[in-house]
Amino acid sequence: MESALAEIEFLALSSNRVAVLETLAEGSHARSELADVTGASQPTLGRILRDFEERRWITRIDGEYETTATGRMVAEGMTDLLATVETETKLRPVTEWLPAESMAFDLGRLRDATITVPSRMRPSAPVKRINEALGRATDVQVCSHAFNEGTLETVRERVVDGRQRFEGVFSRTAIDALAEDDTLRVRLRELTGAEGTSIRRHSEEIPIAITIADGRVYLLVRDDDGVLQASIDTDDPEVLSWARSVHEEYWDAATPLEPEEL
């Protein structure tokens, strides 16, 4: 264990070492090419190459360096470790509020996700990001415990104009909250009766808020008091598959909402 940690430390303490090993894992390179790719000085590069040769991570053939089988293994492991830590660092501000028990996919799939958090100047930034996506999308599925006025209006306009297909399943409380307001009830009725729309009402509280807009997943993250903390969006295929399965699960367990009910 200690020797393995020492080797990890050896690599991790130098970004140049990591860059050289990852570059060679992609293919053979001359020393001059490694200098161009990494920006390392010749003395530094010389020390790195000697250290790697001593560890049998690289070999020199016809004037070019390439990784050995074990060198490639170390490079791949280091790349995976860096990706994992980068993802964890990215998610750390919202980790405590992630619905981890419902997220049936490797969190590493969120490496390239966009995380939008509220700020003093933009307190509604997470919702705004989703509504901007809804304002462009042609195909939308929503599974949520909430259906706010802004989302309703954005979707209604596009659906009524024939520019969007919408399938939404919401908690009963979300539908009831809109129906209590005369103006919003009329807009919801118009949306529900429009061609290209299917809305269902779930009898129980849906504990998650997912929007799928043209194949991109948007997840709203709230704290224990229901205060919005962030939106996370990604087009990762595994996350998309998970989101669609969640939507289908709640959709199948819900009942259709008819315009005359409003």
Rank of each mutant, 00 (worst) to 15 (best):
G196S: 13
F166Q: 11
R136C: 01
V160H: 12
L184M: 10
V155P: 11
I212H: 03
S124N: 14
A12S: 06
R60W: 03
D139G: 07
V239P: 02
L91R: 07
R47T: 12
E2W: 02
A30Q: 00
S119M: 10
R92H: 13
Q229K: 13
D80M: 15
S198K: 07
D80F: 11
R72L: 03
W242Q: 08
H29S: 12
Q141C: 02
G46H: 09
P126K: 03
I130P: 02
E9P: 06
G46M: 07
T68V: 06
V160K: 13
V160F: 15
P123H: 00
T70Q: 12
M1F: 08
G71Y: 09
I58A: 02
R92I: 00
L188E: 02
M121W: 03
A133G: 08
E167K: 13
R201Q: 11
S15N: 14
A133L: 09
R122G: 03
V239F: 07
G150L: 05
V221E: 09
G162P: 09
A12K: 03
E153L: 05
E86R: 10
A254D: 01
F105M: 09
L257A: 09
E204L: 05
T255Q: 13
L21H: 08
W242H: 07
F52N: 13
D182H: 02
E157C: 04
V160W: 14
R129S: 14
V74L: 12
R216S: 05
L49P: 12
R158E: 06
I175E: 04
T192P: 05
L21G: 03
A209K: 04
T84C: 14
I175K: 09
D106F: 12
D224E: 08
P118A: 03
F147M: 15
T68C: 06
S41W: 00
L262Q: 04
D223E: 13
D214M: 12
A133M: 12
A179T: 15
T70W: 15
D225A: 10
E9H: 01
A30Y: 00
L49W: 09
L21E: 05
W57A: 00
V142D: 05
P123G: 04
I115V: 07
A83P: 02
R122F: 11
A194P: 14
L21R: 04
R158N: 05
T255P: 03
L110V: 14
D106K: 07
V74E: 06
I212F: 01
T192L: 08
T44H: 07
V221Y: 09
E54F: 11
T38F: 02
A194D: 08
Q42L: 15
A209T: 07
G27E: 13
W251M: 08
D223Y: 12
T197G: 01
R189Y: 00
M73D: 06
H29K: 12
T138C: 02
A113M: 06
E7H: 00
L219Y: 01
P237I: 08
T23G: 10
D224K: 09
V85H: 06
D224I: 05
L152Q: 14
